[in-house]
Design a protein around this nucleic acid. Structure first.
Length: 122
DNA sequence: ACGATGACGTTAT
DNA sequence: TATAACGCCATCG
């Protein structure tokens, strides 16, 4: 965080979002609303997704670890080719998808249910 | 400056 | 549990 990602975003506000997303540990996922809330934006979950949407193609940010409150992969009609990529990446991190293509936020949610690395099933 | 859009969320049916 | 409609607010044209 010492250095600003400074992709091409005019608003420093986005920098916070990028930084926060980078703080998500592997094997876990966060929701847009959660990130927004942590940034002090209670109902701006949309803008969070928008911020990631703009930076995803130009940054190394683990945007794939961000999903919606339903635990589903949110994808834009524009990036429909990337949705598969995101799912593939998450599976690689050890995240399991439900038959309905959903993630169990109860288990993979960030900062995690056990937070302290409970991982009892391991 | 104004109007329309949108990686979402929540509540209601 | 799934589907539908409304709300919030920054960014884009």
């Amino acid at each position: 965080m010492s250095s600003q990602p400074q992709p091409q975003s005019p608003s420093p506000r986005y920098a916070q979002i990028y930084t926060l997303v980078c703080q998500i540990p592997p094997g876990q996922v966060a929701t847009y609303g959660q990130i927004a809330k942590l940034l002090g934006l209670p109902n701006q979950a949309r803008q969070v997704g928008y911020a990631l949407f703009r930076v995803a193609s130009d940054s190394e940010i683990p945007w794939h670890r961000v999903v919606n409150a339903q635990g589903e992969i949110s994808y834009a009609p524009q990036r429909q080719g990337n949705d598969d990529l995101q799912r593939w990446r998450l599976e690689t991190e050890g995240i399991v998808f439900d038959p309905a293509d959903r993630i169990n936020l109860k288990k993979y949610g960030w900062p995690g249910p056990g937070a302290t690395e409970a991982d009892p099933l391991k």
